[in-house]
Computed example of a mutant assay.
Amino acid sequence: MTTWITDAWYVAGWDAEIDSAPLARTICGVPMVFYRKLDRSVVALRDACPHRLLPLSMGLREGDSLRCKYHGLKLGSDGVAEEMPLKSDAVNRRICAEAYVTHERHRFVWVWIGDRAKADPALIPDLWPCSAEGWTFDGGYYHVACDYRLMIDNLMDLTHETHVHAGSIGQPEILEAPIATRVEGEEVVVERWMPGIDAPPFWRGALKQPGPVDRWQVCRFLKPASVMIDVGVAPVGAGATIESHDQGVRGMVVDFMTPECETTHHYFWGMARNFDIDDPGFTARFKRQQGGVFSEDKEILEAQQRAIAANPDLKLSAYRIDEGGVRARQIIARAIAGAAREGVQP
């Protein structure tokens, strides 16, 4: 049994990553090749020529089609053979590479894993700040050598900020603030409210005024593998609450973890924000800074994965701070078990 949910949308890449040149990326254990047709729509095929299994990502683009670099079998964007290696041979349209459903939304290219008939774009997670008026959004990508669920654990427990990110967004008050965790249907929410504190360096610069602030962190897990973290600060007395907090500066950290295999994943990260939205220089600088923060997580989690492999007789422990990650894992496990009972194959 796999460790990821099938019949779900996963991020395959940023909109800027996928262009006319073939891009190879393994998604949920399946080697895939992605490219854009002349009309800019995205094609996703199994990255294996149906002839001798050479990766199609090594192939040559011809219009909207791909020609295998080994013997020249030409496949259309639907994966169906258009031309045989010997030009004199009749085209056998039963020869094909599996094609996958794709969709673009929120600056991401999504690919459906599972039954094509169930690929409803309405099921794409609602990453609303990434496309909302009055917000701007950008981010990056890391390949991370750990189980994608370890990243979910990390993002649903922001207590680690105090120690892992002490030089940027971490502060002792995070450890002192109470945590509230709840499950809403198939979503998990972890909230932390920090009233009347000094803002850490990044948020002080974003707010552009002195004085104590109220700070919030609201982590929300969405199936199959995304975490949105509502963060920000407002001046004390501005009226911000944990439920409503547009009075100061607000950001939405967007994280999507796409499994590659059991111990590696594709990590797509970014932040949408409602301040300095017309300052592209700030956007570029902040993206670089945020990438540095997430590289600290990458270092920790890859070391954790190596330690898990080196200690097969030990199991992860869960404390109260881990409840959000535990609840998210339970939702993932129930979905996988339900698919298994229905006979769905990855």
Rank of each mutant, 00 (worst) to 15 (best):
V231S: 05
L75H: 02
R46D: 04
T26V: 15
L73V: 04
D115T: 09
I169C: 06
S131P: 01
K74D: 05
M156L: 08
A238D: 07
I152E: 10
R273N: 04
A328W: 00
Q304S: 09
F202C: 00
C146T: 07
L158W: 08
V213W: 07
G29T: 10
V227T: 09
W269N: 06
E176H: 05
V164D: 10
V189D: 01
E62Q: 15
P235K: 07
K223E: 06
D322E: 11
D255Q: 15
L56C: 07
A117G: 12
Q209C: 05
V91P: 09
H266R: 14
L86W: 10
G205N: 14
F275V: 11
L207R: 05
I242S: 11
R94V: 10
P129I: 03
S88I: 12
P212S: 10
P50K: 12
V218N: 06
V326K: 04
Q289M: 13
R25E: 05
Q217P: 06
L66S: 05
E262D: 13
R306Y: 10
G343S: 06
A339N: 08
G79W: 02
Q209H: 14
P22L: 02
P346S: 12
P201N: 10
A309V: 12
A340G: 00
L54A: 15
V80M: 06
E173V: 03
E104Q: 15
P312Y: 11
A340E: 03
V344C: 12
E98V: 07
T258I: 00
E243M: 15
H106T: 07
T264S: 15
A44L: 01
L314C: 14
L175P: 02
S41N: 14
I179R: 02
T263E: 08
R327V: 04
E243R: 15
G251P: 08
C130W: 00
E187N: 05
W110L: 09
F256H: 09
I152K: 05
I331G: 06
L73E: 00
R192K: 07
M228K: 11
M257F: 15
A284Q: 12
K37R: 14
A307H: 08
Y70Q: 11
R334C: 14
I332R: 04
V188K: 00
P125K: 11
